[in-house]
Amino acid sequence: MAPALINANPTIFAPTKQSLRRNDLNARALWIDQRDESDEDTEAEEDIDQQEVFDLIRGISDPEHPLSLEQLHVVSAEQIELSRNRVLVEFTPTVPHCGMSTIIGLSIRVRLMRCLPERFKLDMRVKKGSHQSEDAVNKQLNDKERVAAALENPALVDVVEQCLSTASKRDDMNPLDL
Results as ranks from 00 to 15, higher is better:
177 D>F: 14
73 H>M: 07
136 A>D: 06
143 D>E: 15
125 R>E: 01
13 F>N: 15
57 I>G: 00
145 E>P: 01
149 A>Q: 15
93 P>R: 00
88 L>C: 02
34 Q>S: 04
1 M>V: 02
169 K>E: 13
54 F>Y: 12
135 D>N: 12
22 R>V: 15
4 A>E: 11
41 D>K: 15
130 S>C: 08
148 A>S: 09
149 A>W: 08
26 N>M: 05
10 P>Y: 11
105 G>Q: 06
26 N>F: 01
100 M>P: 00
128 K>C: 03
105 G>C: 04
153 N>P: 03
126 V>S: 01
175 P>N: 00
93 P>C: 01
161 E>V: 07
83 S>M: 05
145 E>N: 06
171 D>T: 01
112 L>Q: 02
165 S>I: 05
4 A>Y: 12
105 G>T: 07
47 D>A: 08
65 H>F: 10
67 L>W: 12
88 L>I: 11
20 L>V: 13
169 K>P: 07
15 P>C: 03
90 E>A: 08
126 V>Q: 01
39 D>V: 10
125 R>A: 00
100 M>W: 02
7 N>H: 04
166 T>S: 08
73 H>N: 15
132 Q>H: 03
129 G>D: 09
81 E>M: 10
159 V>G: 05
157 V>F: 02
70 E>C: 00
173 M>F: 13
129 G>M: 12
97 H>R: 02
44 A>Q: 10
102 T>R: 04
107 S>H: 07
88 L>K: 13
156 L>Y: 11
163 C>V: 12
47 D>F: 08
139 K>L: 15
64 E>D: 12
26 N>A: 08
32 I>A: 06
129 G>S: 09
80 I>D: 04
14 A>C: 00
161 E>F: 08
151 L>A: 01
106 L>S: 04
175 P>K: 00
108 I>A: 00
84 R>H: 15
39 D>H: 14
113 M>V: 04
5 L>Y: 15
159 V>M: 13
113 M>R: 09
57 I>L: 02
119 R>C: 06
120 F>M: 05
36 D>Q: 05
148 A>E: 14
56 L>K: 02
109 R>M: 00
116 L>I: 06
118 E>L: 09
119 R>H: 15
172 D>Y: 06
41 D>F: 14
140 Q>T: 03
46 E>M: 14
58 R>M: 05
149 A>Y: 09
75 V>N: 07
5 L>C: 06
43 E>R: 09
132 Q>E: 13
107 S>P: 13
58 R>C: 07
175 P>L: 05
76 S>H: 10
172 D>G: 05
105 G>K: 04
163 C>M: 11
87 V>T: 11
128 K>A: 05
130 S>L: 04
44 A>G: 02
76 S>E: 13
2 A>Q: 14
96 P>K: 04
61 S>N: 15
121 K>L: 05
134 E>A: 06
157 V>Y: 02
136 A>V: 13
131 H>D: 09
26 N>E: 06
45 E>N: 11
122 L>P: 12
89 V>E: 03
70 E>N: 10
101 S>T: 12
38 S>V: 09
98 C>R: 06
31 W>V: 04
67 L>K: 14
54 F>K: 09
162 Q>I: 12
65 H>L: 08
102 T>A: 05
23 N>C: 10
157 V>T: 06
71 Q>V: 02
142 N>P: 11
106 L>Q: 07
159 V>A: 13
126 V>R: 06
9 N>G: 01
8 A>N: 08
130 S>A: 12
